[in-house]
């Protein structure tokens, strides 16, 4: 039974996540441009649009990275998360649902059509990805008979969940990209909307939103490790190193997918999600239930 990390780990978590998210951004762009971009946004003056709801924008942009860091609190590094909650999976899902509010508020705030439409798009995206996503989380919890993330990881000492529940794993990966509105699921901040929810953001607000999005991607990729890839378990290397290696592999897979796929529009994806992916997720959960509940 793993314990929670000492209290100082809570303060260290954002300090660990931020550089890691920056590294992911660099790998995505295959350059160090994101480092310069951070600096550039820090010197940029904030600007407001007319009749803007500044409180909404500020709340939204602060909430997004906050939600990502809070979600990361239950992700174990090796065997130890910052907080080993008894219902860690539910906590993770709740924090990641905060992103809905964050993105919508950011889209609403600036009083701009493009940014508002970006906000709509994220809500539509949420409706499309969330149900298969929750079923995938449930399936992993069902397989381990626990909502505690460390126990789910421990249940995979023998066989990774990714191997015997592949559909749940694949759906989880899709929703990892979708919840962080990144890559093929980046339409809420899409090019065709001149940046969507980020259109009107300047300076620190922009940094928080775009950085928060990377943090969310990193956190959800890292969560795939205890849920489906055996957590910190592995030969030779210590647990924390296995967590990092596996997270890196998940991210590499997502980045590769990004290069192969165009942006997915929700007017098409929702149909796929409800007609094909949701029944598939239910079926996967049923199979797992039959196996583990004799």
């Amino acid at each position: 039974m793993a314990d929670s990390a000492p209290l100082w780990a809570a303060a260290a978590l954002p300090l660990l996540l931020a550089p890691a998210a920056l590294a992911v951004a660099c790998a995505d762009g295959r350059s160090v441009a994101p480092v310069r971009e951070v600096l550039r946004l820090l010197v940029q003056q904030p600007r407001r649009t007319r009749a803007a709801d500044a409180l909404a924008t500020r709340t939204g942009t602060v909430l997004l990275p906050l939600a990502a860091v809070l979600a990361a609190a239950v992700v174990p590094l090796g065997a130890t998360p910052v907080s080993d909650l008894g219902d860690g999976v539910v906590w993770f899902n709740a924090m990641e649902a905060l992103a809905w509010a964050a993105v919508w508020l950011t889209g609403w705030g600036p009083n701009s059509t493009l940014s508002l439409v970006g906000g709509y798009r994220f809500l539509a995206q949420g409706l499309a990805y969330e149900i298969p996503h929750m079923l995938a989380l449930t399936t992993a919890a069902l397989g381990a008979g626990s909502l505690r993330v460390t126990e789910i990881a421990d249940a995979q000492r023998g066989l990774w969940f990714a191997v015997w529940m592949p559909a749940a794993f694949a759906l989880y990966l899709l929703s990892a990209a979708a919840m962080s509105f990144w890559g093929p699921f980046g339409q809420p901040a899409g090019r065709d909307l001149a940046g969507g929810v980020a259109t009107e953001l300047t300076g620190v607000g922009r940094l928080l939103l775009l950085g928060g999005r990377r943090l969310l991607l990193l956190t959800s990729a890292a969560m795939a490790v205890p849920l489906f890839l055996g957590g910190g378990h592995g030969p030779l290397l210590p647990g924390w190193a296995w967590t990092l290696v596996k997270t890196g592999a998940v991210l590499a897979l997502l980045l590769w997918l990004r290069r192969r796929l165009p942006g997915v529009r929700m007017d098409r994806y929702t149909e796929l999600s409800w007609v094909v992916l949701t029944p598939l997720a239910v079926l996967q959960a049923l199979v797992v239930a039959v196996v583990v509940l004799p």
């Binding site: 940029q44 600007r47 493009l114 001149a194 940046g195 980020a198 009107e200 953001l201």
Partner: peptide, 13 residues
């Protein structure tokens, strides 16, 4: 020059 191109005026220098 590898200067980034941005999508909206708010993001531009």
């Amino acid at each position: 020059r590898r200067w980034p191109r941005v999508l909206s005026p708010a993001a531009a220098d």
